[in-house]
């Protein structure tokens, strides 16, 4: 299951809307091993395409170094589909190389509602998981 703060959820959707009709992509970082998505980082889509996304290699390195120094990891890796459903495509599955990450897909094909779904993609196998959106801007423990 993915537990995610409402404000982060809303920022991911807003990013996807802003870049529509191109695909948007980014990550949510959190402390290593915590499974807590805490810090959203919007990434450039180097492909600038409505059907493909790829992190810009220079920006990716910079972000990774920062995570490394802070003992964080990619808890969520998100991207949007702008004309199809929020489900991993064959391409998404082929290139899913972070087994610990929740792969979040947002579909912006409908102007009023955004589909927001989360998956584990490990060794080519896709498993959808429930998404719990948490209000209040903190981890469950301190409420």
């Amino acid at each position: 299951m993915l537990r995610i703060d409402r404000s982060i959820h809303d920022q991911i959707v807003a990013h996807a809307r802003r870049d529509h009709p191109d695909e948007a992509c980014g990550v949510v970082a959190g402390p290593e091993g915590s499974d807590r998505p805490e810090r959203i980082i919007e990434m450039l889509n180097a492909a600038r395409s409505p059907t493909f996304y790829e992190f810009d290699s220079t920006e990716y390195k910079k972000v990774y170094d920062e995570l490394w120094d802070r003992d964080e990891e990619f808890v969520v890796i998100y991207h949007s589909h702008t004309a199809t459903e929020a489900y991993p495509s064959r391409t998404d599955i082929t290139y899913a190389q972070w087994p610990q990450a929740h792969y979040v897909l947002v579909s912006t094909r409908e102007p009023d509602t955004a589909e927001f779904r989360s998956f584990r993609i490990i060794d080519g196998e896709v498993t959808e998981e429930p998404v719990e959106i948490v209000d209040g801007g903190g981890s469950g423990a301190d409420r």
Partner: peptide
């Protein structure tokens, strides 16, 4: 890729980072 690929010259004290690309798409 911009500094010679596999032929890139290394010096003592260099750092190398391996990162799987993050990519995909709707097709």
């Amino acid at each position: 890729r911009f500094v010679g690929g596999l032929e890139a010259k290394l010096s003592d004290g260099d750092n190398v980072t391996v990162l799987p690309a993050v990519a995909g798409g709707s097709r």
